[in-house]
């Protein structure tokens, strides 16, 4: 066994040497068998991406195009394979989205292209790829990141979906505003029956769990913003669609409850420093529907106010809410047919789709803004828990 003499970090060049025959072992141990919830919890964020890039640098340094190609292909295929196998596990998908993006950023940061070198230290510039231009592979990896992002959104949607109607519409946290329940309200009165139902708190806790997982994995802040905007869109769209289909959700008190719930979601955004990510704006149709439940709906002036307020709702949606509106007590009345006709006349000239329900499957296009890292590759050490002792620091 050779004696391991510790070398000073400045003597390393930020590369990892491996034998061709160890490539399968590398992707197996680092990608296929790595458990984001186990070993990976204590890793520096993006470590698998840095390790793979440092291996790639060594193949590039040796001018071995075949080794570069097979490593990139094995890496991409292994990431796809693990996502096929564990694609319904949010932590796995988030972990590989963060690492795929980090790998993509490394390919840019060390590409030698001046546009990506602006923030590099001199030492980092010395670590640029020497022999190969991997621009085409960067495109493939960017496509892979888009696929992983879409999978992350689906995964998150599967978790959130069952909570939304219960937490945003059915569960009442404001006591005593309902008065007489509108007919058809399916509120359970027994506290035992309430156990196991989702509340707004369940949604907020889940959003917090998604957020902290992504932060822990070193996901780019710009990407987190896009995920959160998409989450809020889904919450808003599913809530509004259910409101548009359920008479028992169209009352003054439900409007109050929804506005309170929206304020709590906004509070969550503020707490996470995400007020400018566009998430709040995705709730606008829901906010306006809640306001519509609460405003007066009688005179021509009321009709005018409604038409200038509900710009994020389609005519079909406005008319549907007015038709479904159900008084909760004897002081209120149903919306008159003539009032609804007035609204329809006023909105006749609007250019819009006749769409009633929102598309809950819509996904905003994602971008991965370049995010260079200040980490010095030569300082990276590989924890023994990764079982990569066959890699040699160079």
């Amino acid at each position: 066994h050779p004696v391991n003499i510790p070398r000073r970090e400045k003597d390393f060049q930020g590369m990892l040497e491996y034998k061709k025959e160890d490539e399968l072992k590398l992707v197996k141990n680092l990608i296929l068998e790595l458990k984001p919830r186990g070993v990976a919890v204590n890793l520096i964020p993006g470590l698998p991406a840095y390790i793979l890039f440092m291996c790639l640098r060594h193949a590039d340094y040796n001018n071995d195009d075949q080794k570069v190609r097979t490593l990139l292909t094995s890496t991409i295929n292994s990431i796809k394979k693990i996502l096929k196998k564990r694609g319904d596990d949010f932590e796995t998908v988030s972990f590989w989205l963060a690492n795929t993006c980090r790998f993509l950023h490394c390919l840019k940061q060390y590409s030698g292209d001046e546009a990506f070198m602006k923030h590099n230290t001199q030492r980092q510039n010395e670590h640029s790829l020497s022999n190969f231009d991997l621009a085409e592979y960067r495109q493939v990896i960017s496509d892979l990141a888009i696929q992983i992002y879409q999978q992350l959104i689906k995964c998150m949607e599967n978790i959130l979906q069952p909570m939304i109607v219960s937490g945003m519409l059915e569960h009442e946290t404001i006591q005593g505003v309902s008065g007489v329940k509108p007919t058809g309200l399916r509120k359970r009165t027994s506290s035992i029956a309430d156990e196991g139902t989702y509340t707004l708190d369940s949604i907020l806790r889940q959003l917090g769990a998604f957020h902290s997982t992504m932060c822990q994995h070193g996901t780019d802040p710009e990407l987190i913003k896009q995920v959160v905007k998409q989450q809020f869109y889904i919450i808003g769209a599913v809530t509004l669609n259910n409101l548009l289909l359920r008479k028992d959700m169209c009352s003054w008190s439900k409007g109050m409850q929804i506005r309170y719930n929206v304020s709590q979601l906004e509070e969550w955004l503020r707490d996470k420093g995400l007020m400018t990510c566009g998430a709040k704006e995705t709730l606008e149709p829901l906010i306006q529907a809640a306001q519509l439940l609460q405003v007066k709906k009688k005179t021509d002036e009321d009709a005018e106010a409604i038409c200038s307020m509900c710009l994020a709702l389609t005519t079909a949606q406005i008319v549907k809410v007015l038709n479904l509106y159900t008084p909760v007590n004897e002081f209120e009345e149903r919306v008159s047919v003539s009032f609804i006709r007035t609204i329809q006349t006023r909105l006749r000239d609007r250019c819009e789709s006749p769409q009633l329900l929102m598309d809950t499957k819509m996904i905003y296009p994602v971008t991965f803004p370049f995010s260079p890292s200040s980490l010095a590759l030569e300082t990276i050490q590989i924890p023994s828990s990764l079982n990569l002792a066959f890699l040699t620091r160079v």
Binding site: D65, T73, D133
Partner: peptide, 29 residues
């Protein structure tokens, strides 16, 4: 400053890689 330009490595598309991957997956049970 570099003395010579880097060599562009042609890459298959993600879809092409997927096709390549099918034969690979058939091997595993």
């Amino acid at each position: 400053p570099r003395s010579r330009p880097r060599v562009l490595l042609k890459a298959p598309t993600l879809a092409e890689m997927e096709e390549m991957n099918i034969s690979e997956e058939e091997e595993s049970p």
